[in-house]
Write a protein that binds this DNA or RNA. Structure first.
Lengths: 297, 297
DNA sequence: TCGCATGATGCCGATTGGGTATCAATATTA
DNA sequence: TAATATTGATACCCAATCGGCATCATGCGA
């Protein structure tokens, strides 16, 4: 026999009443059942918790020690269950959010702030990851929500567009293009490019390549960096040019110039994505929050 | 269905393994039983704790919240049970000890100190009480051990003598008797006596009276006080004389003189007493400790 | 002495817990 | 592509546990 919460609840009532019939009434059971339950608990512990006669019930020293712990166990159990329910209905718990460089440079900070103001008991856990990594982690249940590049069409996933950005060319301020107001994409054909690492930035490259192809060239990538900050650093050193999006370019360090690509209408979309079968707890509230926002421009 | 510790243990194992067959093996039950138990727990909570396919088991946000609490509940339960056992076998817990003025002025402090050195996890709870009060509280289970005056012969009680004291007369240093080396009890016949309150000191009076009666008088009590300190205070103010015991008199304040009663052979005994049916936990260890001491002189 | 109060025990039926067998769905392998 | 393996869920059945009613044993008070 393993002692259960039932036994512990029966014990607390008996310890408080010190009278088996009254304790049984309080518990809504018959006195013999209570008598046997306490005996079973004592047998399991191999400890006398009460000294009883047919006239009186007294609690032992061990019983008093057990009573302190028993009250804590019950309180902790009730609290744990209540917190699980609260987490289930989304009012508390962790929300693991993945984000790309484009998301964190754009709409995401304000989204997180707005949501956090509405759900103070939810703990946001932002985790950087490129799009493909986020998708994998969503599948594995390691992320609740992702902010990724481009529309995602995948079974079991749903999404909502949260931002849409024009492409921009970034050059060093010493570059001949720096004094221009804008460029045609074809003018980059002979330039050295700086880009992200071939594994992590494959997804972004798959958006950039068709744009260049239409102008008759493939970007000649001479340098790779790990993230946008690294890319921009290499560009400002004159190692080449790059193409990023308007939000990433909106707060440039000195030494860099951003140029519109006048003949490029394509935009880079950032979407919030989630697994439909995992939309429970705080994630459900976040998606509700997103749906209530005006559409992204 | 009320969730039980069994469910909580099953849940923790499942949350740690994230695989029902392996968790069931670890718990020593069949996988279908585990499946059903987790479902029952989820139904009770009305919370999804896992997202399961036939390929994978993932824990939900609510599941993770519940896991934190579940681990605490199990640890607290195990600890509480262990402490109850420890208290039962006497290694820890409270020991409620009653004492008289005679006990605390005599052997008791050293006894408590000696026991405490041997049983550091036991908390001693000394509580002053006159003999009759202590007996009542032992019967009610409010005390574990008493240090009372005189031999106690009462069904269900056992005892051991811990000290034995001669009677002494105490007078103010301005009293004519103060320059004497000793007295006969009959010399007190005409004196005003200071004694304890008639209710609380009845038990002591029942020892004193036969001694005076044998010398042909009953003490003429003119003043009452609540305890020995009060009695001695009144005596030092010249309000009368008193008869106490040697230990209480051993550290007198200025203004008081102690005189042996040369023809009184009776001694006042202080005994440790306990209920035989209540000799469990730390009380048992204390009594063992007393039995190991040399007999009281 | 009798009546009452109180915890323990006996007997029985209902409910719960667990095992084996099987199913449904998916992934892997040949 | 078909066969096989894996995995959680469900069906059926039996054993164990829990709780109720009736009764017993004991002690106290009128």
């Amino acid at each position: 026999m393993r002692s259960d919460l039932r036994h512990i609840r029966y014990f607390v009532a008996t310890a408080e009443e010190l009278h088996f019939r009254r304790a049984a009434e309080r518990l809504g059971i018959a006195q013999p059942a209570l008598s046997r339950a306490i005996q079973a608990l004592e047998a399991d512990l191999d400890v006398a918790l009460f000294v009883r006669t047919n006239r009186s019930v007294q609690i032992t020293t061990a019983g008093r020690v057990f009573l302190d712990g028993a009250r804590e166990i019950i309180a902790l159990t009730d609290r744990t269950m209540e917190e699980a329910r609260t987490a289930h209905d989304g009012r508390m718990g962790e929300l693991r959010i993945g984000y790309t460089d484009f998301a964190i440079a754009g709409a995401l900070p304000n989204l997180l702030k707005g949501f956090q103001e509405r759900h103070a008991r939810v703990t946001l856990k932002p985790q950087h990851g490129v799009t493909l990594t986020q998708i994998k982690r969503l599948e594995e249940g390691q992320l609740d929500l992702g902010f990724v590049t481009g529309p995602i069409t995948r079974d079991g996933f749903d999404q909502r567009v949260v931002q849409s950005e024009a492409f921009r060319c970034v050059v060093a301020d010493s570059h001949p293009f720096a004094r221009r107001d804008g460029l045609q994409i074809a003018e980059l054909a002979k330039e050295d490019f700086v880009h992200g690492s071939s594994t992590d930035w494959q997804h972004f490259y798959d958006y950039l390549l068709p744009i260049c192809r239409r102008a008759g060239f493939a970007p000649r990538i001479r340098q790779e960096a790990f993230n946008t900050a690294g890319i921009l650093g290499l560009v400002s050193c004159g190692m080449g040019v790059t193409v990023l999006t308007e939000r990433v370019c909106s707060a440039l360090a000195p030494g860099l110039v951003t140029l519109p690509l006048l003949d490029v209408d394509e935009r880079l979309v950032t979407s919030a994505v989630w697994r439909v079968d995992h939309l429970i707890g705080p994630a459900r509230h976040f998606v509700d929050y997103l749906q209530d926002l005006p559409p992204a421009r």
